[in-house]
Design a protein around this nucleic acid. Sequence first.
DNA 1: ACAAAAGTGTTGGATTTACACCCATGA
DNA 2: TCATGGGTGTAAATCCAACACTTTTGT
Lengths: 255, 255
Amino acid sequence: MPYDPSAFPPFAVTVDLVVLTVRKHALCALVVRRGEPPFEGQWALPGGFVRADEDLEAAAGRELGEETGLRSQEPADDAASVRDPGAHLEQLATYGTPDRDPRMRVVSVAHLVLAPDLPTPTPGGDARGARWASVTSLLASEDQGPEDVEVGPLAFDHDRILADGVERARSKIEYSSLATAFCPPEFTVGELRRVYEAVWGVALDPRNFHRKVTGTPGFLVPTGGTTTRQGGRPAQLFRAGGATLLNPPMLRPEV
Amino acid sequence: MPYDPSAFPPFAVTVDLVVLTVRKHALCALVVRRGEPPFEGQWALPGGFVRADEDLEAAAGRELGEETGLRSQEPADDAASVRDPGAHLEQLATYGTPDRDPRMRVVSVAHLVLAPDLPTPTPGGDARGARWASVTSLLASEDQGPEDVEVGPLAFDHDRILADGVERARSKIEYSSLATAFCPPEFTVGELRRVYEAVWGVALDPRNFHRKVTGTPGFLVPTGGTTTRQGGRPAQLFRAGGATLLNPPMLRPEV
DNA sequence: ACAAAAGTGTTGGATTTACACCCATGA
DNA sequence: TCATGGGTGTAAATCCAACACTTTTGT
C-alpha cells in the first residue's frame, strides 16, 4: 500500500494519568473534576493533549507537574531523590476506541504514576477541582451502590484505564522494588509492608515480610537512622537500593 | 486549560507488529522490506495506518492478516482454534518520539503477536518482500558485526520495538501459558519445552519440565493421541488448557 | 507495668534440582 | 541391537508459612 502522508486520517493524541498513592492505609488515585462538556462536572483522570513537538513521556511528566507539583524521576539523578519527592512514571497502555470521545477521534496514551503520600491534602497547581479517592470506591461504583457518592463513574473510559493501572501496580510490586515509590525517601520496613497491604488489600506477616525484604541483596540499604513515628520499638530507616528486580518475588496471598 | 477541539496538533497513528514464531529451534521475527523512502530497501516491522473508524486492536489484526494470512484469536471462539492456526495478539507499547519518522509526527501503537510455525516459509499476502529472521541476528546487528548481512538494522525505531517485544515474550511465558501460542493446536511436552528453550536461549531439564507442566492443573489437557514426529518413544499430545496463569511460574535459569 | 511495633529463631511442608533409571519406538 | 526422545522415582537443598519469643520504645 503506497504511503501518502497527506492522506492519513487525523487523530488527536492525549496522555492520561493514573496517579496512585497510599493514604491512610488505602490505595488512592488522583481525580479531577471536568469543567467543560462532555461529562461536565464528572470526575476524570488528569490528562491533556500532547504538544506538537513533545515526547509522550515528556507530556505525561508535564501534565503530572501541572496537576500535582510532582516531578517524575525515572533516571534517578544522584541525590535529587532525597530533596524532592519524586515519583515513578511509566507508560501503561493506549486507548483508541473510535467512539471513546464523542467529539472526535482521540487516542490516549495512558501513563502510570506511583507517588509517595503528599504533604498537601489536595494537590495544588492549576487544577480546578482535584482530590484523592480510594480506588475501591472508584472501582466499586460501577457495580454496587454509591459507596462514595462524591465520585461516581469516571468520564470517558477512565474507569477501565484506572482498573488497568491498578492491576499493573498490584502485579508489578510482586517482582520489582516499585513499592518503594509509594514511600518517602527514608522509610521503615513496617511502612513498606503497609504499602503492600494497602495495594493488595491483604494482611502480611510482619516477621516473614521483614526477613524477605532485608534478606534480598540490594533491595534496601540502611541509612543508620531510626524512627519511632509508628510507635513501639524504634525501627531502622532504609532507602531503596539499586536492585530494581525482586527475585524471588514477593508472594501475594490468595484472595 | 480550556479544551479547543479544532486546535489540537494533528498526529498520524499507525500500528506496528512484532510477530514472533519459533522456527528450527530459534526465535524469529517477521520483517518486510520497505518499498519507498524513507529507509527504502531497508527491513522493517510490518505495520500501517489506523483507519479513521477502526479500533487499534482491529487495525493490528487487519495488518496481521494482510501480511501473514494469520488471524488473531484473543477470545478463543469454541473450536475455531483447532481448524485455524490462530495467534495471540496483545498491545505492546506506544512509540511517539517527535522525530521518529522524518516526514511527519507519527505515533505508533506496537502490538505483539505470537504465532505457531507457519507452513509457508515466506508469508504470503500482499507484502512485497517478507521473511523470517532470527531475533539474535536482528538484535545483534547493532553492536556486533553483520552476522546476518541480509537484514541490517531495522528502519525507524523498530530495533527498539522489536527488543521490547522480545523481552515481553520472554518474561510473559514465565508466568502464563502463552508459550502454547507458539505451538500448533496439538503438541507434545517436548515441543513445548523446545519453545521455552528457543525463546529463552537456554537448555531445560526434560524430566523436570515434564513434571512441571503436566502437574499444573488446567495448563495442558491430553487429547488422547500420540505422535512420534520427533522420533523416539511416542509422546502424548496435548492441547492448551483453560488456565492462562502459571502458578508457580516457570523458572528461567540464570544466564 | 503495659501496649505496641520491631525483630530473631525454629519447625514442618512444599517446591526445585539433579540425576538414576525405565519405556517405546524407528533404523 | 542401538540410538533417540518420553516419562517416573528419589534424595538433598532451598524456600515459605506459621508462630513462639525477645527487644525497645511511649504512656
